[in-house]
Amino acid sequence: MSKVGPLGEGLSVSAGVQADSSAVSAGPRARSLSGDGPESPRGALAGVRAGVRLLRSEIGLTFRRPRNLALLGVLAVVPLVIGVAIRAAGDGADSFVGQVAGNGLVLTFAAFFVMLPLVLPLAVGVVAGDSIAGEAGLGTLRYLLTAPAGRTRLLALKYANVVVFAVAACALVAVSALVTGLVLFPVGPVTLLSGSTIPLAEGLLRIGLVALYAAAGMAALGALALAISTLTETSIGAIATTLVLVVVAQVLQAIPQLAVIEPYLLTSWWAGFDGALRDPVATDQMGQGLLVFAAYIVVCGSIAWARFTSRDITA
Protein backbone atom coordinates (compact mmCIF):
# COMPACT_ATOMS: atom_id res chain seq x y z
CA MET A 1 0.00 0.00 0.00
CA SER A 2 1.12 3.52 -0.63
CA LYS A 3 0.11 4.46 2.88
CA VAL A 4 2.97 6.77 3.65
CA GLY A 5 3.09 8.50 0.28
CA PRO A 6 -0.06 10.47 -0.32
CA LEU A 7 -1.28 10.67 3.25
CA GLY A 8 2.13 11.60 4.56
CA GLU A 9 1.64 14.88 2.76
CA GLY A 10 -1.24 15.55 5.10
CA LEU A 11 -3.54 18.34 4.14
CA SER A 12 -1.99 19.09 0.81
CA VAL A 13 -5.46 19.84 -0.50
CA SER A 14 -6.38 22.38 2.09
CA ALA A 15 -2.90 23.81 2.09
CA GLY A 16 -3.63 24.85 -1.47
CA VAL A 17 -0.74 23.05 -3.15
CA GLN A 18 -0.45 22.99 -6.93
CA ALA A 19 -2.60 20.91 -9.17
CA ASP A 20 0.19 18.49 -10.11
CA SER A 21 0.74 17.48 -6.49
CA SER A 22 -2.67 15.87 -6.36
CA ALA A 23 -2.05 14.28 -9.72
CA VAL A 24 1.13 12.77 -8.34
CA SER A 25 -0.66 11.45 -5.29
CA ALA A 26 -3.31 9.96 -7.56
CA GLY A 27 -0.81 7.79 -9.37
CA PRO A 28 0.53 5.40 -6.72
CA ARG A 29 -2.81 5.31 -4.92
CA ALA A 30 -4.69 4.31 -8.02
CA ARG A 31 -2.16 1.58 -8.68
CA SER A 32 -2.19 0.38 -5.10
CA LEU A 33 -5.92 -0.19 -5.34
CA SER A 34 -5.73 -2.47 -8.34
CA GLY A 35 -2.28 -4.04 -8.15
CA ASP A 36 -1.27 -4.05 -4.49
CA GLY A 37 -4.56 -5.55 -3.41
CA PRO A 38 -5.38 -7.98 -0.64
CA GLU A 39 -3.55 -10.81 -2.45
CA SER A 40 -0.16 -9.18 -2.03
CA PRO A 41 1.38 -9.71 1.43
CA ARG A 42 2.13 -6.04 2.02
CA GLY A 43 -1.38 -5.02 1.05
CA ALA A 44 -2.83 -7.72 3.29
CA LEU A 45 -0.73 -6.61 6.25
CA ALA A 46 -1.76 -2.98 5.80
CA GLY A 47 -5.36 -4.14 5.48
CA VAL A 48 -5.17 -6.05 8.76
CA ARG A 49 -3.59 -3.06 10.50
CA ALA A 50 -6.35 -0.77 9.24
CA GLY A 51 -8.96 -3.32 10.36
CA VAL A 52 -7.45 -3.46 13.84
CA ARG A 53 -7.52 0.32 13.97
CA LEU A 54 -11.23 0.46 13.14
CA LEU A 55 -11.99 -2.37 15.58
CA ARG A 56 -10.15 -0.47 18.31
CA SER A 57 -12.23 2.58 17.47
CA GLU A 58 -15.40 0.47 17.71
CA ILE A 59 -14.37 -1.03 21.04
CA GLY A 60 -13.37 2.37 22.40
CA LEU A 61 -16.75 3.77 21.39
CA THR A 62 -18.61 0.82 22.97
CA PHE A 63 -16.77 0.88 26.26
CA ARG A 64 -16.77 4.65 26.65
CA ARG A 65 -20.44 5.11 25.95
CA PRO A 66 -22.24 6.00 29.21
CA ARG A 67 -25.21 3.74 28.43
CA ASN A 68 -23.01 0.70 27.92
CA LEU A 69 -21.02 1.47 31.05
CA ALA A 70 -24.29 1.54 32.98
CA LEU A 71 -25.17 -1.88 31.55
CA LEU A 72 -21.78 -3.26 32.58
CA GLY A 73 -22.35 -1.73 36.02
CA VAL A 74 -25.62 -3.67 36.31
CA LEU A 75 -23.85 -6.88 35.26
CA ALA A 76 -21.27 -6.33 38.00
CA VAL A 77 -23.82 -5.48 40.66
CA VAL A 78 -26.31 -8.34 40.16
CA PRO A 79 -23.94 -11.10 41.46
CA LEU A 80 -23.17 -8.85 44.44
CA VAL A 81 -26.90 -8.46 45.17
CA ILE A 82 -27.45 -12.20 44.88
CA GLY A 83 -24.55 -12.84 47.24
CA VAL A 84 -25.70 -10.30 49.80
CA ALA A 85 -29.27 -11.65 49.64
CA ILE A 86 -28.09 -15.21 50.27
CA ARG A 87 -25.85 -14.05 53.08
CA ALA A 88 -28.74 -12.14 54.66
CA ALA A 89 -31.08 -15.13 54.32
CA GLY A 90 -28.56 -17.27 56.15
CA ASP A 91 -28.48 -21.05 55.88
CA GLY A 92 -31.82 -21.50 54.21
CA ALA A 93 -34.39 -23.99 53.17
CA ASP A 94 -33.33 -24.00 49.51
CA SER A 95 -30.52 -26.45 48.84
CA PHE A 96 -28.93 -24.27 46.13
CA VAL A 97 -28.86 -21.29 48.46
CA GLY A 98 -27.43 -23.56 51.12
CA GLN A 99 -24.72 -24.67 48.70
CA VAL A 100 -23.71 -21.09 47.95
CA ALA A 101 -23.66 -20.32 51.64
CA GLY A 102 -21.42 -23.32 52.07
CA ASN A 103 -19.02 -22.49 49.20
CA GLY A 104 -18.43 -19.06 47.65
CA LEU A 105 -17.41 -20.52 44.26
CA VAL A 106 -20.94 -21.79 43.71
CA LEU A 107 -22.12 -18.17 43.61
CA THR A 108 -20.58 -17.88 40.12
CA PHE A 109 -22.79 -20.69 38.82
CA ALA A 110 -25.79 -19.18 40.61
CA ALA A 111 -25.07 -15.81 38.98
CA PHE A 112 -25.03 -17.29 35.46
CA PHE A 113 -28.13 -19.32 36.25
CA VAL A 114 -29.99 -16.14 37.22
CA MET A 115 -28.55 -13.81 34.59
CA LEU A 116 -28.39 -15.92 31.42
CA PRO A 117 -32.11 -15.90 30.63
CA LEU A 118 -32.58 -12.10 30.59
CA VAL A 119 -29.94 -9.83 32.13
CA LEU A 120 -27.01 -10.86 29.94
CA PRO A 121 -29.17 -10.97 26.77
CA LEU A 122 -30.35 -7.46 27.62
CA ALA A 123 -26.80 -6.12 27.76
CA VAL A 124 -25.64 -7.91 24.60
CA GLY A 125 -28.92 -7.16 22.80
CA VAL A 126 -28.52 -3.44 23.45
CA VAL A 127 -24.97 -3.28 22.09
CA ALA A 128 -25.60 -5.59 19.11
CA GLY A 129 -29.04 -4.20 18.25
CA ASP A 130 -27.59 -0.71 18.28
CA SER A 131 -24.55 -1.56 16.18
CA ILE A 132 -25.89 -0.82 12.68
CA ALA A 133 -29.29 0.72 13.41
CA GLY A 134 -27.75 3.18 15.87
CA GLU A 135 -25.26 4.42 13.25
CA ALA A 136 -28.06 4.65 10.69
CA GLY A 137 -30.22 6.61 13.11
CA LEU A 138 -27.43 9.05 13.93
CA GLY A 139 -26.60 9.38 10.25
CA THR A 140 -22.98 8.46 10.98
CA LEU A 141 -23.40 5.31 8.88
CA ARG A 142 -23.25 7.33 5.66
CA TYR A 143 -20.02 8.97 6.73
CA LEU A 144 -18.48 5.66 7.82
CA LEU A 145 -19.35 4.21 4.41
CA THR A 146 -18.01 7.19 2.47
CA ALA A 147 -14.80 7.17 4.56
CA PRO A 148 -14.86 4.40 3.06
CA ALA A 149 -15.18 1.70 5.74
CA GLY A 150 -16.52 -0.86 3.22
CA ARG A 151 -19.83 -2.55 3.94
CA THR A 152 -18.63 -6.12 4.49
CA ARG A 153 -15.63 -4.93 6.43
CA LEU A 154 -17.70 -2.65 8.65
CA LEU A 155 -20.25 -5.39 9.35
CA ALA A 156 -17.53 -7.91 10.23
CA LEU A 157 -15.81 -5.47 12.58
CA LYS A 158 -19.14 -4.49 14.16
CA TYR A 159 -19.73 -8.16 14.89
CA ALA A 160 -16.21 -8.62 16.24
CA ASN A 161 -16.95 -5.74 18.59
CA VAL A 162 -20.18 -7.44 19.70
CA VAL A 163 -18.23 -10.63 20.45
CA VAL A 164 -15.67 -8.66 22.45
CA PHE A 165 -18.49 -7.09 24.43
CA ALA A 166 -20.17 -10.47 25.02
CA VAL A 167 -16.91 -11.96 26.31
CA ALA A 168 -16.29 -8.91 28.51
CA ALA A 169 -19.84 -9.07 29.88
CA CYS A 170 -19.56 -12.77 30.81
CA ALA A 171 -16.08 -12.30 32.25
CA LEU A 172 -17.37 -9.40 34.33
CA VAL A 173 -20.21 -11.51 35.73
CA ALA A 174 -17.79 -14.32 36.56
CA VAL A 175 -15.25 -12.04 38.23
CA SER A 176 -17.85 -10.09 40.17
CA ALA A 177 -19.48 -13.29 41.42
CA LEU A 178 -16.11 -14.81 42.25
CA VAL A 179 -14.97 -11.81 44.26
CA THR A 180 -18.32 -11.53 46.06
CA GLY A 181 -18.26 -15.25 46.82
CA LEU A 182 -14.70 -15.09 48.15
CA VAL A 183 -15.52 -12.14 50.40
CA LEU A 184 -18.89 -13.26 51.75
CA PHE A 185 -18.62 -17.04 52.02
CA PRO A 186 -16.16 -19.78 52.90
CA VAL A 187 -14.33 -21.30 49.94
CA GLY A 188 -13.26 -24.86 49.37
CA PRO A 189 -13.55 -27.88 47.10
CA VAL A 190 -16.67 -27.77 44.91
CA THR A 191 -19.43 -30.36 44.97
CA LEU A 192 -20.72 -30.85 41.42
CA LEU A 193 -24.28 -31.51 40.23
CA SER A 194 -23.38 -35.17 39.75
CA GLY A 195 -22.42 -35.40 43.42
CA SER A 196 -18.65 -35.78 43.14
CA THR A 197 -16.26 -33.20 44.51
CA ILE A 198 -13.43 -31.45 42.67
CA PRO A 199 -10.54 -29.41 44.12
CA LEU A 200 -10.64 -25.61 44.26
CA ALA A 201 -8.24 -25.09 41.32
CA GLU A 202 -10.32 -27.26 39.03
CA GLY A 203 -13.41 -25.42 40.28
CA LEU A 204 -11.90 -22.17 38.98
CA LEU A 205 -11.22 -23.85 35.64
CA ARG A 206 -14.85 -24.95 35.44
CA ILE A 207 -15.92 -21.34 36.13
CA GLY A 208 -13.85 -20.25 33.14
CA LEU A 209 -15.55 -22.93 31.05
CA VAL A 210 -18.99 -21.72 32.11
CA ALA A 211 -18.11 -18.11 31.28
CA LEU A 212 -16.79 -19.08 27.83
CA TYR A 213 -19.86 -21.17 27.04
CA ALA A 214 -22.12 -18.32 28.14
CA ALA A 215 -20.10 -15.91 25.99
CA ALA A 216 -20.58 -18.20 22.97
CA GLY A 217 -24.33 -18.22 23.62
CA MET A 218 -24.33 -14.45 23.87
CA ALA A 219 -22.25 -14.17 20.68
CA ALA A 220 -24.97 -16.16 18.89
CA LEU A 221 -27.59 -13.79 20.27
CA GLY A 222 -25.36 -10.93 19.13
CA ALA A 223 -25.46 -12.27 15.56
CA LEU A 224 -29.27 -12.40 15.69
CA ALA A 225 -29.43 -8.84 17.05
CA LEU A 226 -26.95 -7.67 14.40
CA ALA A 227 -29.14 -9.13 11.65
CA ILE A 228 -32.18 -7.36 13.09
CA SER A 229 -30.10 -4.21 13.38
CA THR A 230 -29.50 -4.16 9.61
CA LEU A 231 -33.26 -4.18 8.99
CA THR A 232 -34.14 -0.92 10.68
CA GLU A 233 -32.95 2.63 11.23
CA THR A 234 -34.02 2.88 14.87
CA SER A 235 -31.83 1.15 17.42
CA ILE A 236 -34.65 0.99 19.99
CA GLY A 237 -36.66 -1.05 17.47
CA ALA A 238 -33.80 -3.49 16.91
CA ILE A 239 -33.09 -3.85 20.62
CA ALA A 240 -36.75 -4.32 21.55
CA THR A 241 -37.28 -6.89 18.78
CA THR A 242 -34.28 -8.89 19.98
CA LEU A 243 -35.45 -8.91 23.58
CA VAL A 244 -39.03 -9.79 22.62
CA LEU A 245 -37.67 -12.75 20.64
CA VAL A 246 -35.60 -13.85 23.65
CA VAL A 247 -38.63 -13.75 25.93
CA VAL A 248 -40.99 -15.40 23.42
CA ALA A 249 -38.48 -18.19 22.79
CA GLN A 250 -38.26 -18.91 26.50
CA VAL A 251 -42.06 -18.94 26.81
CA LEU A 252 -42.32 -21.40 23.89
CA GLN A 253 -39.61 -23.48 25.50
CA ALA A 254 -41.74 -23.81 28.62
CA ILE A 255 -44.76 -25.22 26.74
CA PRO A 256 -44.53 -29.04 26.77
CA GLN A 257 -46.64 -29.44 23.60
CA LEU A 258 -44.03 -27.49 21.65
CA ALA A 259 -41.14 -29.76 22.61
CA VAL A 260 -40.40 -30.43 18.92
CA ILE A 261 -39.24 -26.90 18.25
CA GLU A 262 -37.21 -26.64 21.43
CA PRO A 263 -33.92 -27.84 19.90
CA TYR A 264 -34.13 -25.07 17.31
CA LEU A 265 -34.51 -22.30 19.87
CA LEU A 266 -31.33 -20.45 20.73
CA THR A 267 -32.42 -19.83 24.31
CA SER A 268 -32.91 -23.49 25.17
CA TRP A 269 -29.17 -24.11 24.71
CA TRP A 270 -27.98 -21.35 27.03
CA ALA A 271 -28.69 -23.42 30.15
CA GLY A 272 -26.29 -26.01 28.74
CA PHE A 273 -23.49 -24.32 30.70
CA ASP A 274 -24.35 -26.66 33.58
CA GLY A 275 -22.59 -29.36 31.58
CA ALA A 276 -19.41 -27.87 33.02
CA LEU A 277 -20.68 -28.75 36.49
CA ARG A 278 -20.84 -32.49 35.86
CA ASP A 279 -18.19 -35.11 36.26
CA PRO A 280 -16.89 -35.66 33.68
CA VAL A 281 -17.78 -32.44 31.81
CA ALA A 282 -20.84 -33.10 29.62
CA THR A 283 -18.91 -32.42 26.42
CA ASP A 284 -21.54 -33.73 24.01
CA GLN A 285 -24.30 -31.57 25.52
CA MET A 286 -22.07 -28.50 25.50
CA GLY A 287 -20.66 -29.41 22.08
CA GLN A 288 -24.15 -29.58 20.64
CA GLY A 289 -24.93 -26.22 22.20
CA LEU A 290 -21.83 -24.71 20.61
CA LEU A 291 -22.87 -26.16 17.24
CA VAL A 292 -26.28 -24.53 17.55
CA PHE A 293 -24.60 -21.23 18.45
CA ALA A 294 -22.33 -21.56 15.42
CA ALA A 295 -25.32 -22.30 13.19
CA TYR A 296 -27.10 -19.18 14.47
CA ILE A 297 -23.97 -17.10 13.86
CA VAL A 298 -23.62 -18.39 10.28
CA VAL A 299 -27.30 -18.00 9.37
CA CYS A 300 -27.85 -14.63 11.04
CA GLY A 301 -24.47 -13.41 9.81
CA SER A 302 -25.44 -14.28 6.23
CA ILE A 303 -28.78 -12.53 6.56
CA ALA A 304 -27.09 -9.46 8.01
CA TRP A 305 -24.50 -9.50 5.20
CA ALA A 306 -27.05 -9.97 2.42
CA ARG A 307 -29.18 -7.17 3.76
CA PHE A 308 -26.43 -4.73 4.69
CA THR A 309 -24.47 -5.00 1.44
CA SER A 310 -27.54 -4.34 -0.71
CA ARG A 311 -29.38 -1.81 1.38
CA ASP A 312 -29.91 1.82 0.35
CA ILE A 313 -28.47 4.15 2.97
CA THR A 314 -30.99 6.98 2.92
CA ALA A 315 -30.72 8.05 6.56
Partner: peptide, 15 residues
Protein backbone atom coordinates in the same frame (compact mmCIF):
# COMPACT_ATOMS: atom_id res chain seq x y z
CA UNK B 1 -12.87 13.21 13.24
CA UNK B 2 -10.50 10.53 14.54
CA UNK B 3 -13.36 8.07 14.46
CA UNK B 4 -14.08 8.67 10.77
CA UNK B 5 -10.38 8.70 9.96
CA UNK B 6 -10.12 5.24 11.56
CA UNK B 7 -12.77 4.00 9.15
CA UNK B 8 -10.62 4.92 6.12
CA UNK B 9 -8.33 1.94 5.50
CA UNK B 10 -5.76 4.03 3.65
CA UNK B 11 -5.44 6.77 6.27
CA UNK B 12 -2.14 6.84 8.14
CA UNK B 13 -2.75 6.59 11.92
CA UNK B 14 0.65 8.16 12.63
CA UNK B 15 -0.39 11.51 11.17
Amino acid sequence: LRRFDAADPSADPRT
